[in-house]
């Protein structure tokens, strides 16, 4: 578990995004147990308060649930998982679009490039749940 933090965006949000991606990619199954706050802080070498904040943020976004003094668990609510997935995709697309616009590429050219790129891309990492 290595996260390349950048110093400019809040660390706790980067931790949340990291977990969102893992949930979206199914690396973290629904209902699975989350690592404890202390383990995570030590492993990521970040301030325990930040981990605490990240967990609170995830709870607010109902990504995880925590009963009293029992380790937190990934949510079992599909809607939430689906929502994360679309959120991530939209976000990625938004970033992509923003960077492409400067190069003023026509729509058709763009679509055909993506098809080719995405097609090849599709070949080797099979089997992600749609």
């Amino acid at each position: 578990m290595i996260i390349q933090f950048n110093t400019r965006s809040p660390v706790y949000i980067q931790v949340v995004d990291y977990f969102k991606k893992k949930m979206a990619l199914g690396e973290l199954k629904a209902g699975e147990e989350m690592p404890s706050r202390r383990e995570l802080a030590t492993e990521l070498k970040i301030n325990p308060n930040t981990v605490q904040k990240a967990f609170k943020e995830m709870e607010e976004q109902q990504l995880i649930t925590t009963e009293r003094n029992r380790p937190s668990r990934v949510t079992t609510d599909d809607h939430v998982l689906k929502r994360i997935r679309t959120e991530l995709v939209d976000e990625a697309v938004a970033v992509f679009v923003e960077s492409i616009q400067e190069l003023d590429v026509t729509m058709d050219e763009l679509v055909s490039k993506i098809k080719r790129q995405y097609g090849e891309g599709n070949l080797d990492d099979r089997g992600t749940g749609s």
Partner: peptide
């Protein structure tokens, strides 16, 4: 040392560090 700061040993203690190079502890500081 950095590892120590994120460990339980330092939990709920008030820590005041002085430094002029911040990059070592960018992620530790509240």
């Amino acid at each position: 040392i950095v590892e120590l700061f994120s460990s339980d040993i330092m939990e709920d203690r008030g820590v005041l560090i002085t430094t002029h190079e911040i990059d070592d502890i960018e992620y530790l500081v509240d």
